[in-house]
Design a protein around this nucleic acid. Structure first.
Length: 157
DNA sequence: CGTGTTTGACCGGCGC
DNA sequence: GCGCCGGTCAAACACG
């Protein structure tokens, strides 16, 4: 398996240096693929459950890759800490259909990155889930999506 | 009219 | 304090 586009951190400290705008706490861990977003779409219209994808953990078990081959081959990296999930997806499009409806509520330029960060909230009334979408500043062919919170519902819309 | 986007203002935390 | 920085609000706007 190729790790192109993703360099596993030697330590939490070096990883934070590598991606300093992502505030992963020191004790962030990988603990399995999303149960909360089982229907996430990888790219375009290709839709597969996460648990059917190929999962690769690094030796420390602190990060992982999700690799899916197909006509739109996509590599994803996922990290999790305390209900916050970050994915790195190789994709030309930033609007990745993950099965939920989102309402954009903000957009900011972040320091040291030429790319804006977009803020979305789940469209379902009262649902607390938010996500951020931005391009990887080091490799703009990747889109980083960070989910926060647990849906208060199960239907996608 | 219903829903979602755009965009500058606003706000709170933090370092100096 | 003050200013920077990231996150959110909300009024105006777009579009079916």
């Amino acid at each position: 398996m190729s790790n192109d586009g993703f360099k596993p951190p030697d330590s939490a400290e070096s990883d934070r240096a590598y991606r300093s705008d992502f505030e992963f706490p020191d004790d962030w861990t990988f603990d399995g693929w999303l149960e909360d977003y089982p229907e996430a779409v990888i790219s375009g219209s290709i839709q597969i459950p996460f648990n059917q994808a190929n999962v690769i953990n690094d030796s420390a078990g602190t990060s992982s890759l999700l690799q899916v081959s197909g006509e739109n081959e996509t590599v994803r990296e996922r990290r999790e800490v305390k209900g916050r999930y970050a994915f790195k997806t190789k994709s030309e499009v930033e609007i990745l259909d993950d099965g939920y409806r989102w309402r954009k509520y903000g957009k900011k330029m972040v320091k040291n990155s030429p790319n804006p960060r977009n803020y979305y909230r789940c469209s379902v009334e009262g649902c607390p889930v938010k996500k951020r979408v931005e391009r990887d500043r080091d490799d703009p062919s990747y889109v980083i999506t960070t989910y926060e919170g647990i849906h208060s519902h199960h239907s996608a819309s």
